[in-house]
Write a protein that binds this DNA or RNA. Structure first.
Lengths: 337, 337
DNA sequence: ATGAAAGCGCTAACAC
DNA sequence: GTGTTAGCGCTTTCAT
């Protein structure tokens, strides 16, 4: 039996045009010879690799594994595989990985790195590649995109603190020039204004990175410059954790002295001390949806770019409480326990 | 200028045989045309893909991201890339991914899935593939392997509890048939025997999975059957976390009523409440070393298989303390605070 | 120092 | 229903 007949037998799409007996025969032979088709030869011929490139800042950020798994779960049924590259927020590494993925003939990109100005996005736009963005925004290119509704998440955090009685609320923003940091910071200022708090009672400080270390350093500087604040809205959970840690070394307790909110409700946000009040984002879903968006584009490049904002909601745990002055008030009025 | 000349100019290994002027010319042209070599065509011709397949149980287990990053950091300088596949501990999914990676012409495999009997290992052995194992053992095939020294880690945990005064110590083992679970369980029994504790004072119960849920269920069953135990050695951190959680719902405090140790010192093991006493393993290093082992094999298949056991050490935090009876004793003897 | 030509393993258009 | 053939883009041996 001829090679092309064999190929047809092994391909479910074409095995219909063959005699069932031939198909059986070939499949049996393939099995016994442990035959596996060469994806390179196939890709060379068909001009698609059935792989997509995934650009991430860092797999060690607990935010990303569920996104990756969500992406895979949506790609797998369609026969696509993701190639993962970590950029560590380094534009050079990102560009390097982008080109490496391009040379591997990926059919499209999912990009989760978050710099506002990104040479990779520019080049992808210029080359007219299939791209979908996740967990970030994009002012310039209007790529399809799915992200949590950061604005309403931050507003919910600010409102929660306000309702507890806080009036001097600070924001520990993410690093400068990073999309989600920018959005959350602007949402913070907006929410503060909406509650009638004067900007000088709501200081904003940017962290070096979306990390515990970044949060710790910035929180130390913040408390030094603004000792009067009673609550902190952190731009993500890691920053919140870092802030809480430094609070402790400064002899301040969370939430008794200072309330802190996080963002993402990452894994273990409920297991740390104090359990984090934070904004829950369904990262697995984020991944599934962005993969769907990319698959749509791979099917038909003519569609218009959708921007999905998935709903988020505040999860209230132990890291937020009424400010000390109010708590004293309550205690002096009520009976001792 | 001819295609083969162009190819030579772009390849650093062959550009030496060309006139420097030609090289410059070609490189400039490649740049301006945004040329990227087609990895498929190259792979088809050279018969190697410069990729390796990485089989993991689940990227969501915080243990694996640092291993992955360690692997990548060692592969990148050699031009190799890892293709990651999650098996969710499902033998069928694992076999499926194994074959998919094979068809993508990976040059070798790093396997971090942990079932003792694994069809993938058998087939890889039979096909004489380049394989290196990480964070698991292997009785049958003698593949090169790097893992933490689980035996001495478990022994350190048991000794620590013994030294605190515990004499009825239970083990929450990992799932049946999983390599690291088996090793740790046998190490536990050995350590218990070495300390002269009778086996009936040291019950062992296997969890459904290396998960919080698995740990919670098994801990509930354990405390039901053996209410007298004062300490638990968990087979990993997630099991420990699940156990501590169920303790709380049963009205027991950790470490006051029951001490618990984990294994891995995964991220946030120090941030949870109580901060986990656990065995630290350097997972990034684990990844780097296993990648090195695979690269060695890719260079020369004739070498003998090494098995590296990286040192581990106990990190004492808040989840372990002397048993209640001793603590009472201490308290009644000492002055009240 | 450069050009020519073959072939890696597959698919798809075409022939019979 | 099955065989024939060309060619995807690269590397590499050989020729000049």
């Amino acid at each position: 039996v001829h090679r092309s007949t064999a190929a047809r037998a092994l391909n479910p799409a074409t095995s219909g045009m063959l005699a069932p007996a031939t198909v059986k025969l070939v499949q049996a032979a393939a099995e016994s010879l442990q035959y596996t088709a060469n994806a390179f030869a196939r890709g060379l011929r068909t001009q698609h690799s059935m792989t997509i490139g995934l650009l991430l800042p860092d797999l060690n950020n607990p935010l990303f594994p569920p996104i990756v798994r969500g992406i895979e779960s949506a790609l797998l049924p369609h026969g696509y595989t993701a190639l993962i590259a970590n950029t560590d927020n380094d534009p050079e590494r990102e560009l390097m990985h982008f080109h490496a993925l391009l040379s591997r003939q990926v059919d499209g990109f999912i990009i989760a790195t978050a710099r506002n100005d990104d040479a990779v996005l520019d080049e992808a736009y210029e080359r007219d590649l299939a791209v979908a963005l996740v967990n970030r925004s994009d002012e310039h290119h209007h790529f399809p995109l799915v992200s949590g509704d950061d604005r309403s998440g931050i507003r919910a955090a600010v409102d929660h603190l306000y309702d507890l009685g806080h009036r001097r609320i600070a924001h520990l923003a993410g690093p400068l020039g990073v999309s989600s940091a920018t959005v959350r910071e602007s949402a913070f200022r907006e929410a503060i204004r909406a509650r009638g708090i004067r900007p000088r009672a709501a200081p904003v400080l940017a962290c070096e990175g979306f990390t515990e270390a970044g949060g710790a350093d910035a929180a130390a500087a913040l408390l030094d410059a603004h000792p009067g604040i009673t609550a902190i809205v952190a731009s993500n959970d890691l920053i919140a954790l870092g802030a809480i840690r430094i609070l402790r070394t400064l002899g301040l307790a969370c939430p008794q002295d200072i309330s802190v909110t996080g963002f993402n409700d990452m894994r273990f946000a409920d297991a740390v001390t104090p359990a984090l009040t934070t904004v829950r984002v369904d990262h697995h879903l984020l991944g599934k949806e962005v993969a769907q968006l990319l698959l749509e584009q791979l099917r038909d490049r003519s569609g218009v770019a959708k921007a999905l904002l998935l709903p988020v909601y505040l999860v209230t745990r132990e890291s937020t409480a009424p400010p000390r002055e109010l708590r004293r008030g309550i205690r002096s009025r009520g009976p001792a326990r």
